[in-house]
């Protein structure tokens, strides 16, 4: 039912289509890409042409092939970090909310501390000490530092659900804690977990791009962030090679935007209150017919 509502939502459809498009062309990069992304196949900074769809980089590499392959790494990092974030958020949020007491105190304290610590500077310090961090490491450090918000949301939802009578009733018929958590509670949290996951992926893609752009990433890997980094360090904009910078920019933005649209739609579908209010619509209709005055 949830899925059906989602399919009827135009924002969700646009979001999912763009996202699917990116995932497909990244996966199909070896087939679609005309050149080896790491090979010098042209002169430095050739403008877009039929030979090089998106031009070439300072190193004479084909930007189109690069952006396809880069998608593989950027999307993988985003999804991996998103999974780590969601997993930790879920484990901590559910335990804190369901078990309460000492466990809750410890987890809530940790969550609150992480929430008041500045995220990006913390990541920068970590990355700076770790040296040129590989995409896998980036996914890991983003994952383990950004779960606090999701954890808090899941905890408060769990707390609210825990007081619901259907949970009490399940306890009274003698359901064990593990079944109450996974069978009774969890399905009620799906939309929150889903939108939390999408949010985490957006955050991870953005953060990866940021870290790599300022040169904390591994410059030999090909991702949207390192493409930006190479374009920036080769002063692409100042020599007029706008394509070198703009192509990864557009890729990141479109991918992020598709996820944001999807998330917006999930929220809208899962939270009926945000859907146009029946009463309000009725009021507006009456307004149009002149039955009431604004």
């Amino acid at each position: 039912m949830f899925f059906k509502l989602l399919i009827r939502n135009p924002q969700a459809v646009i979001g999912m289509s763009i996202m699917a498009f990116f995932i497909v062309i990244s996966l199909a990069a070896p087939i679609i890409a005309p050149y080896d992304p790491e090979a010098r196949v042209g002169l430095p900074h050739e403008a877009p042409s039929s030979e090089h769809l998106f031009g070439t980089s300072r190193m004479g590499r084909d930007v189109f092939s690069q952006v396809l392959y880069a998608g593989q790494i950027s999307i993988t990092v985003g999804i991996t970090a998103g999974l780590i974030t969601t997993f930790i958020a879920l484990a901590t949020g559910l335990s804190a909310g369901y078990f309460g007491g000492r466990i809750d105190e410890v987890i809530t304290f940790a969550t609150n501390v992480i929430l008041v610590l500045p995220q990006l500077p913390l990541l920068l310090v970590l990355a700076a000490f770790l040296g040129e961090v590989s995409p896998a490491l980036i996914a890991f450090i983003i994952g383990v530092t950004s779960w606090a918000w999701g954890s808090r949301v899941i905890r408060s939802q769990t707390l609210a659900l825990r007081e619901k009578e259907f949970i009490k009733a399940a306890e009274l018929i003698g359901e064990p804690a593990r079944r109450i958590i996974f069978i009774e509670l969890l399905p009620n949290l799906i939309s929150i977990i889903g939108s939390g996951f999408i949010g985490a992926v957006i955050y991870a893609v953005m953060t990866q791009a940021t870290l790599e752009f300022i040169g904390l990433g591994d410059p030999t890997s090909i991702s949207w962030g390192t493409m930006l980094y190479h374009a920036q360090t080769s002063s692409a904009i100042y020599v007029g090679a706008w394509w070198d910078l703009l192509v990864p920019c557009v890729a990141i933005s479109l991918f992020g935007a598709s996820l944001a649209l999807l998330n917006f739609a999930v929220d809208e579908v899962a939270n009926p209150k945000l859907r146009a209010k029946g009463a309000l619509r009725r009021y507006k209709r009456m307004l149009k017919r002149g039955e009431v005055k604004a």
């Binding site: 957006i202 953005m206 791009a209 940021t210 990141i252 933005s253 944001a260 649209l261 619509r281």
Partner: peptide
Amino acid sequence: RGSIFDSLATPGALVMQSIPSVVICLVALI
């Protein structure tokens, strides 16, 4: 709610928020 303004401004704002600041800055700079 539900007007053209709403259905443009709201998802638009969300999309803006999900574009990394690197990209916004670079595009503005260009």
